[in-house]
Design a binder for these strands. Sequence first.
DNA 1: CAAATACTTCAGTCTACACTTAAATATGGA
DNA 2: TCCATATTTAAGTGTAGACTGAAGTATTTG
Lengths: 226, 226
Amino acid sequence: METAFKNIAALIGDPTRATILWTLLDGKAFTATELAIAADTSPQNMSMHLTKLVQADLLSVESQGRHRYYKFSRKDVAYAIEALANLIPAARNTPAVEQDSAVKYCRTCYDHLAGKIGVAITDSLISQEILSETFDLTTKGNKWFGKIGIDVDVLKQQRRTFIRPCLDWSERRHHLAGAVGAALLDMMLAEDWLRRTRQSRAIVVTAEGEKMLKKHFLLTPSSVHV
Amino acid sequence: METAFKNIAALIGDPTRATILWTLLDGKAFTATELAIAADTSPQNMSMHLTKLVQADLLSVESQGRHRYYKFSRKDVAYAIEALANLIPAARNTPAVEQDSAVKYCRTCYDHLAGKIGVAITDSLISQEILSETFDLTTKGNKWFGKIGIDVDVLKQQRRTFIRPCLDWSERRHHLAGAVGAALLDMMLAEDWLRRTRQSRAIVVTAEGEKMLKKHFLLTPSSVHV
DNA sequence: CAAATACTTCAGTCTACACTTAAATATGGA
DNA sequence: TCCATATTTAAGTGTAGACTGAAGTATTTG
C-alpha cells in the first residue's frame, strides 16, 4: 500500500501534471489542447500525461467528436488537490503594492465560490444567521435560500455532502462548499451576477451582480476588492 | 500561486519524500536515521530530503541531544497526505487469500485510530447513539465519554477541531478524528488496550483490550479480524 | 473528396536531481 | 580523552522519465 501511495504522489509531483490538476480545480472539463496551452507544453506531451492520469483513475475522459474532454474522475481528487493547495506557504511579507491577480479575490474552487468573495459571502451568511457557526443551515436559512430560488430540500436528497466548509488557500478562511455551495454558484452564474473568464479560474462580478451582492450579502465593492 | 502549487507537488512527488510523509502519518516524531531506514536509503540522502521538507515548512525539527526529531509542522500537512492516500485505487479483484497486512485492520491515521477497527468503533459509537449520524456528540455521548475517563469539555476548549470524520483509505468509510478521536486513541494506549508496534503504523490489541473493546463497543475479535 | 483540426503513438534525446562517496561537525558514553 | 553514534555538507555521477520530432488515426468542414 505504501507503493500505491508513492505512485499517486509521483503522479501528482510532475510540474506539468500538477498544472493540469490545478487547472481542473476550476470544476470544468478541458480538452487536451486547452490543457497543453495552459501547461505551456506540446500536445504530444500533454497526451502522454493525460493518459497516465486517466490510467490512475484521477481523471476521466469523455469524447465529443474530435475533442476529448478531461475532468476529475471523482470529487476526492479535487479535495486532495485543495488540501495540497492549502500547504502553499502563507504570503510572507506583504509587498507595498498588492500584486495578486484577480484570482485571489474571486475564483472558483472545484464547483463552488472561493477566494475573498467566497469567504465574504460565507461570513455574511453566518452573521445573518442563515448558517450557524458550525455550518448548519438554520430555520431562517431554509427560508432565505427558498427566497433566492434554491430549493434546499432537493439538495438534501443528493448523495453528495449537503454543506461542508472548505478552507481557502489564499484567504486561509473557511467558505461554503458542498451541494449548497455549488447551488449558490450555479445560481449566481445563471442570474448573471457573476461571469466566468475565458482561460482562468477568475470570476468577474457584473454590474447587476454588484447590486445583488450588496442587497443579499451586504457586500460593498470595497469589501470584496473587485 | 500556480508555481507555489507545483513546488509543493514536486516536493511530495519524490518516492523517498513520499515515504517520509507516509511514515509520519503515524503521528509520532521520527529521527533522521529511523526515517532513512524506513525509506531504505542512506542517512546523507535522507538528510538532504528532510532539509527540503523543513525549508518548505511541511516538517519541523526538534533537536534532542544528538538526535533530531522530525514531525509534521502543522495538521494541514497530515490532512493533505490523508487526502492523497484516499486516492489510492480501491482493491480491484480481492484475491482468494487475504494478503493484506495487519496494518489494514488496525493502524493509526495521524493521531487517531483508523483501519478496520477505527471504522468499527465509529460505527458502534453511532449505533449506541453516542454520536449522531452527522458526527455530533449527543447528550448521551457526553456522559459516556465522561464514564470512560475523557473530559469532552476540556477537549472543546482546544483550538483544534472537536470532532471530524476522516475518510479511511483502506476501508473507504468514515472514522472518528479531531480532538475526540485523538483522546480516544490516547486513552486506549494509556490503558494498554492497544500497543504500538515498533517500526510500523500497525497497532496490536492486548488481551485486556479485547475484553474492553467487547464491553464498550460490542466488538468481537472476528468483527475486527485481529 | 481533400484539407484542416484534434489527438495519439512511437521512436530517440537530454537533463534535472536523487543518490553516492568522502569528509566534517556535534553529542554521548566509557 | 578517545571512540561510537547521529547527522550534515560538499562534490561528482547516473538514470528515470519528461520532452521532441515524425508519423498515424479520427473527426469535421468546405
